[in-house]
């Protein structure tokens, strides 16, 4: 593999460039996926049947914790990518590990939130609204879960092989994925929670 040193390592080989472009296109598909979920959410939001509405079940505290944790993790992974670019393997691994820990925290709070919903009678099968709410949140949560496993694998690989064009590429793509989840969350926060609570 030829390595072009004029570019950042993650872009350094032809295959790396293909991977990154491919991932951007994948994110385009993901935007459509979440876009469809949002469109369905807005269509079904008032169709609560005999179940509760958003205003009745949303609680600000866990949502704020989730938001802060996830935003911070997005910032930390940015630091991780910076560390990677200047070749500091240890710092990079540390930042990635912190990112994953924050992600784990987010997931924990979200699981608590879900259990709370089910507990107060807003389970998946209650109404069209609860179904789309939990599916939208759940799809995001599943993405985060997947990201945790994926990120963990990447840390293992960086530890083993150091920062190579291959691991740098994977780590960079993972960071794109993580930022994307953050952006999706911002939409969820604004249009599901804030709008629902107002």
């Amino acid at each position: 593999m030829k390595i072009d040193h004029s570019l950042p390592l993650e872009y350094g080989t032809d295959q790396n460039q293909l991977n990154i472009l491919g991932f951007w296109i994948f994110l385009g598909a993901e935007i459509m996926l979440f876009g469809t979920l949002f469109a369905s959410y807005f269509t079904l939001v008032d169709r609560t049947g005999s179940g509760p509405s958003g205003a009745e079940i949303f609680e600000i505290t866990p949502v704020l914790i989730e938001t802060i944790v996830l935003l911070t993790s997005s910032f930390v992974i940015g630091l991780g990518v910076h560390a990677m670019r200047i070749g500091r393997t240890k710092a990079m691994i540390t930042f990635y590990a912190i990112t994953l820990l924050l992600g784990l925290t987010f997931l924990g709070v979200e699981i608590y939130e879900f259990m709370h919903y089910v507990h107060i009678g807003a389970g998946l099968q209650v109404s069209a609204f609860t179904a789309i709410l939990l599916t939208t949140l759940g799809t995001h949560g599943a993405h985060v879960t997947f990201g945790l496993v994926w990120g963990f694998f990447i840390i293992l690989q960086v530890r083993k092989h150091g920062i190579t064009p291959e691991t740098a590429n994977k780590s960079f793509i993972f960071s794109l994925y993580w930022h994307f989840l953050d952006v999706v969350w911002i939409f969820i926060f604004s249009f599901v929670y804030l709008k629902g609570m107002m």
Partner: peptide, 24 residues
């Protein structure tokens, strides 16, 4: 997404498209 919702309606008893409890 549509197929996920369909699967959930059919297997997990949600109400996305089934016309009870707000489904559409």
């Amino acid at each position: 997404v549509a197929l996920i919702m369909m699967t959930m309606d059919r297997l997990f008893g949600t109400h996305f498209f089934a016309t009870t409890n707000g489904g559409m």
